[in-house]
């Protein structure tokens, strides 16, 4: 490892910040599913993966090494000597999870309506039907 670090000084930075790499991989997986798949349900699953990667990014930013969950002692005082992780990203992501499920449910409802109207949820077939209706 030491020779590797002297040869490539950025490698330590990359390994120490592995959380961002996981976020990028997950985000790009979700993005890829979203733009390459024609099935509307599959697109929504991809969107959910994308969302979770953003959640992970916020949560890992709030983490402090050696910290613990931000819950105070019994008298409403921070326990002395205990390092708390940052509560603010947790709050934001709690809101984001609920909003994400709300948008997912609207997306699924739209998919169901499209299925009822077109008889398919595949994007290319829908486009073909639209072109047919236009001509």
């Amino acid at each position: 490892m030491s020779w590797a670090q002297s040869a490539f000084p950025w490698i330590g930075h990359v390994v120490a910040n592995y959380n961002y790499w996981i976020v990028i991989v997950l985000m790009m997986t979700g993005f890829y599913v979203l733009i390459s798949r024609g099935n509307l349900i599959k697109k929504l699953v991809g969107l959910n993966v994308f969302q979770t990667s953003v959640f992970l990014m916020y949560i890992t930013m709030g983490k402090i090494t050696g910290g613990t969950a931000p819950i105070l002692g019994s008298h409403g005082e921070p326990v002395p000597g205990v390092l708390y992780s940052n509560p603010l990203p947790h709050v934001l992501i709690l809101t984001a999870i609920v909003v994400g499920v709300a948008t997912t449910s609207v997306g699924l409802a739209l998919a169901v309506r499209i299925k009822e109207a077109y008889g398919t949820v595949e994007e290319d077939e829908i486009n073909a039907l639209d072109a047919e209706a236009d001509s």
Binding site: I41, L44, V45, N48, T52, F55, I59, T60, G62, K63, I64, G67, T68, A69, P70, I71, S85, P89, H90, I93, L94, I97, V98, G100, V101, T104, S105, L108
Partner: peptide, 24 residues
Amino acid sequence: MDAVDVAFTEAAVGAGISTVLFLA
């Protein structure tokens, strides 16, 4: 990552409700 509140929201809402909605 010390985000216990987020974890149980994700388990209930993400793993539970979302999956049920998708299955429906």
